[in-house]
Design a protein around this nucleic acid. Sequence first.
DNA 1: AGTTTGGCTTTTGAATACAATATCCAAAAT
DNA 2: ATTTTGGATATTGTATTCAAAAGCCAAACT
Lengths: 217, 217
Amino acid sequence: MGSSIAIINRSLHDQVASRIRDLIIEGSLEPGSRIDELQMLEELGVSRTPFREALRTLAAEGLVIVRPSKGSIVRKLTQEDVFSMLEVLGSLEKLAGELACERASDKEVEAMVQLHESMMECYRTQDRMPYYKMNQEFHSRLAELSKNETLQEMQSNIQARLKRIRYIGSQTPESWAGAVADHEEMILALKGRDATRLGQAMVAHLKKTWDRVKDGI
Amino acid sequence: MGSSIAIINRSLHDQVASRIRDLIIEGSLEPGSRIDELQMLEELGVSRTPFREALRTLAAEGLVIVRPSKGSIVRKLTQEDVFSMLEVLGSLEKLAGELACERASDKEVEAMVQLHESMMECYRTQDRMPYYKMNQEFHSRLAELSKNETLQEMQSNIQARLKRIRYIGSQTPESWAGAVADHEEMILALKGRDATRLGQAMVAHLKKTWDRVKDGI
DNA sequence: AGTTTGGCTTTTGAATACAATATCCAAAAT
DNA sequence: ATTTTGGATATTGTATTCAAAAGCCAAACT
C-alpha cells in the first residue's frame, strides 16, 4: 500500500502523520502518555508546523487527543470505547457483507476465496504475522466489495483505532481456530451470495472478537 | 451546544474550523471551488498557521480536500457519495434505534416524545426552520440514547457532511408529510421498546430521504 | 509544618519570514 | 499556426521567531 512514487508526492505532514500512526500502533507511543513535541521533532527531523498539522489529522481520526495549551496525548481506549467500536464495526461489516453479496463480481468473489485459501495455509503452518496481515486485508477487501466508499472509509477508520488492540490481542490457539471457522462460514456465504447469512456471520465474528479481546484492555 | 465559556477556552484553529464549516453548510463556499487562503485569512482575521490546521481537521472530517501544492477545495458530493452516505447512515441509525430501545431510560424516551410533539407543532404551523433544527436534534438524540459513543461520532460526522444537502434539499409538502409520518412511527416503536420495529423505521426513513434528495444533487 | 504566592522555566500557540512548487503568459522554434 | 520552453508571478509548504499560557519551585507568610 502506498508506492514510493506516491510517497514523494505526499506532503510532509501526511508522512509525519503516517509515522506517528505507526508509532502508536506498534506501541512505541504508549496510550495516555504525553507526546513530547520537542523530542518528536528531533526524531522525525521536521519542524513544528507540519508536525502540528499531522497532530490535527490524527486528532480528527481519533488516535490522539489535543488538550488546548496542555499538549497532546495518545488516546487511551477504555473497555467501553472498544466495545462501542466493535459494536459499530459489526454493524458496518454486516452491511458490507450484505452489499458484497449483491454487488461483487464473480471475479472479485473468486479473489476473496483465494485470499482465504492463503490464510488457511498460514493457519496450517501457524504463521501468525502473515495471517494477521491477510486478515486485515480480508476485512478491507470485503468493505471494498460493498462498492460503498463511505462504508470503506468508516470501517478503515475504526480498524485503525483498533489496530493496536488487535495486534496485542494475541489469540490463543482455540480462539484462532474459532476465527478461522468464522472465516470459513463467511466464504461459504459469499460464494453462495447469501446476504443474510454473510451479514449474520460478520456480526457473530465481531461479537467473538470482543470476547477474545475484552480482558486484555 | 458549546457554551460561551467553552468557546473562550477553545484554541483558534478550532474556532476557525467551525467558522469554515458554517460557511460550507450555508453555501457561501461553493462545493468544488478553490478555497482562497489569502482572502479567507483576511475575512477571518487570523494567520496562516491556525487556518491551515483547521483545514487539516476539515479534511479529516471529509468536508474539504487538500491537494498537495494545489490548494484546497470544498468537497463536492456526487450522487454516489450521497447515496453511500445515506446507506451507511441508515445502517447506523438502525443500530442506534435498536440499542436505544434497550438502553434508554424511561425519562429519556419521554424527552424524545416531547421533542416529537414540538416538531409536530412546527409542522402544523408550517415553521420550516425550527422543524429542520429539531429534526437534526432528534436524530442526534436518538444516537445518544444508543449509549454508544463511536456510533454518535460516526453519525454526527455523516450528518455534518450531508447537512448542506439536506438544508437545500427543500422538501415538498408531500415529502414533509411523509417525514412526519415516519417520525410518528419511530416514536411509537420507541415508546413500545420495539427494537426491530424502530430499526426498520430508521432504514425506511433514510431510504425515503434518498428518494427525496437524489434529484437535487 | 503546611499553604499560598511570586517569579522563573518549560511548553504550547500564533505570526511572520523564507523556500519550493505550480501556474500562466509570452516568445521562439518547428 | 501550433506547440514548446523559459521565466515571471502567484500560491502553497515549511521553518523560524515571537508571544502567551501552564507548570514548577522556592520563599514568605499564616
